[in-house]
Design a protein around this nucleic acid. Structure first.
Lengths: 144, 144
DNA sequence: CTCTATGCAAAACCTTTGCATAGAA
DNA sequence: TTCTATGCAAAGGTTTTGCATAGAG
């Protein structure tokens, strides 16, 4: 069961149809191994499939999110980016404020405490988002 | 040293000028005790100061952020909101996905682990953002 | 006086949608 | 044949800016 199969089943379950553009976009999406903006994805899609329009990329991205293959993230700087979701376990982000480097991390102790914290306030946990900002080793070397 | 003084000093430090609209907007801003959108702030400003334009609210809000009085937050649902910053210690958010209720919290254990986590990856911590989503007690009562 | 702040309106952006046509089932 | 999908272009919505005038220092 890979991403493409998940997507095809999702398409079927919604009574939608298969199409080349959708599979082409999915393929390009899966081969970009970072958090991408719609424009970045579109640019990459155009290289392989010049005839695909922006609107189709846009609509397919929404489908991917709905189908659990993609997650839309809104960052502190106001940008919107998308990341792979299927087969990727939950993770949080370390982000370098100098160079933008992004590291995916999970800290089980923090995860457990987050659940406790929510329960303590009467919440039933569903999901969360944690972004930790700072300067990475490299950036501190060059600019002391 | 209150917010208004902080703002005036900030204005001076940047070689800018005092003005009634700016102080009026700051005053209204400070009296809204929740995370507000630009439009909500503008609506509130218009009641007290009908002649102030949207652009001035917009530009003043940017100044407030720059001056450390206000923080711009981008939420998972794509909305942008602003919260008071000066005199408010750092905090994280619990957000009800049903009713939108927002609780400000701090968990010292989590804070400490976040710092450790960053250090472990070679980052020097600057700030972070943690939003925990779930359903609150009330919403689970009404819809079981 | 001189330089900044303001209100207005328009521009720039980004996101989303309508529609006629192409394509899947 | 009967739907849905697509590309294009245009509409929406929000954020940002230019400019002439008002206002602060």
């Amino acid at each position: 069961m890979n991403e493409t199969m998940v997507f095809e089943r999702f398409i079927e379950s919604k009574g939608l149809k298969h199409s080349k553009p959708r599979l082409g976009i999915l393929d390009v999406f899966l081969n970009i191994e970072k958090h991408m903006s719609i424009d970045e994805l579109w640019a990459a899609v155009r290289i392989k499939h010049p005839s695909i329009g922006y609107a189709t990329v846009y609509r397919t991205l929404k489908l991917l999110c709905e189908g659990g293959l993609c997650r839309e993230l809104h960052f502190e700087d106001g940008t919107t980016r998308f990341e792979h979701l299927y087969g990727h376990d939950h993770h949080d982000h370390l982000i370098c404020t100098e160079c933008g480097r992004l590291v995916e991390v999970v800290d089980e102790k923090i995860e457990a405490l987050q659940v406790k914290l929510m329960r303590r306030h009467g919440f039933s946990p569903k999901y969360h988002r944690m972004d930790l900002y700072g300067t990475c080793k490299n950036c501190r070397k060059s600019e002391p």
